[in-house]
Design a protein around this nucleic acid. Structure first.
Length: 288
DNA sequence: AGCCAGGACTAAT
DNA sequence: ATTAGTCATGGC
């Protein structure tokens, strides 16, 4: 099936799926493979639109929502501050969208992310999925993809089982989060209706979830565009590009600057900065 | 061998 | 209120 895309509205499947937001996707022979909850997808971007195959019928709304195809990035970009470096990052990553992930999958992914390279997070994600997720088949390709296990499934495991997937000290964090989510002690969908600060407070109440991971969950799965995750890359960007004269800025001051300077769609801007820095480094990045 | 990777927690100042 | 040490693991 082909989902038509307007050429005038920028969309890049490569950038959106491969910019460190979600860890379930892999590209083989020009086709992206992955699962969104319990539906497996194969995706290929073509000039006329997005070609897709899925493990179940009638999944177009799932895809449109996940890839945010119902929004026009121009409506968001015009809220960005105008500065040369951000403009360069936006220009270089035209079509990069903030995904709308499942909150549990997003929370699990970023609990696994701390102090890990993206490729390794993907490897852990794959092991967990293959061990305890559901096998899904995309008939057109007779291929099998595994879903990421629901919170109730993880909650029943032993910490030692999770550690065998290579997640180390993150295992008890993931297990504890799974228990909170599956019992309803933490109701992730309810966080949507809360102000960002209140939703963040509930997330950071989880062991192993601090400001950065909470902000990733808020931004990538709960529509909180003002959440601005600061990881090692973004920290370098702010220090080198935006506050080059100010030495000895602590984490809180950097966060303070980012929240005020980038505004209510700051999280979206953050993703352009992150991906640009990760792809190009910052050695030749000069604010001119 | 040492350092870093989309961090967070605890204990010691 | 800030800072160092610790927590696993893999890649270079």
């Amino acid at each position: 099936v082909i989902l038509p895309l307007k050429p005038s509205v920028p969309f890049s499947l490569d950038l959106s799926l491969n910019s460190g937001q979600a860890f379930s996707w892999s590209k083989r022979e020009g086709v992206w493979w992955g699962a969104i909850r319990n539906v497996a997808f194969a995706l290929k971007q073509r000039p006329e639109g997005l070609e897709y195959w899925a493990s179940t019928p009638n999944v177009k709304p799932i895809l449109v929502n996940y890839l945010a195809l119902d929004e026009d990035p121009a409506d968001i970009l015009r809220h960005f501050p105008t500065d040369p470096f951000l403009s360069r990052c936006v220009q270089a990553n035209r079509g990069l969208r903030i995904l709308r992930q499942d909150p549990w999958e997003c929370l699990a992914g970023f609990i696994l992310s701390s102090c890990k390279q993206i490729t390794h997070i993907q490897a852990i994600w794959k092991k967990v999925s293959e061990n305890w997720g559901k096998p899904l088949t995309v008939k057109a390709h007779h291929a099998t993809i595994y879903s990421f296990p629901e919170s109730a499934v993880i909650a029943r495991l032993e910490e030692s089982q999770l550690r065998k997937c290579g997640m180390g000290f993150r295992a008890p964090y993931l297990l504890n989060a799974a228990k909170h989510v599956s019992t309803g002690a933490l109701h992730l969908e309810n966080l949507r209706s809360l102000p960002t600060v209140d939703a963040r407070a509930q997330l950071t109440a989880l062991n192993g979830v601090g400001r950065k991971i909470a902000d990733c969950v808020l931004l990538f799965s709960l529509d909180k565009m003002d959440a601005f995750p600061i990881d090692t890359w973004i920290s370098k960007v702010i220090r080198k590009i935006y506050l080059p004269k100010k030495r000895k800025m602590n984490a809180k001051q950097i966060q303070q600057f980012a929240d005020t300077y980038f505004g209510k769609y700051g999280g979206y801007a953050q993703q352009y900065l992150f991906h640009y820095a990760r792809m190009n480094g910052l050695n030749d990045a000069i604010l001119d």
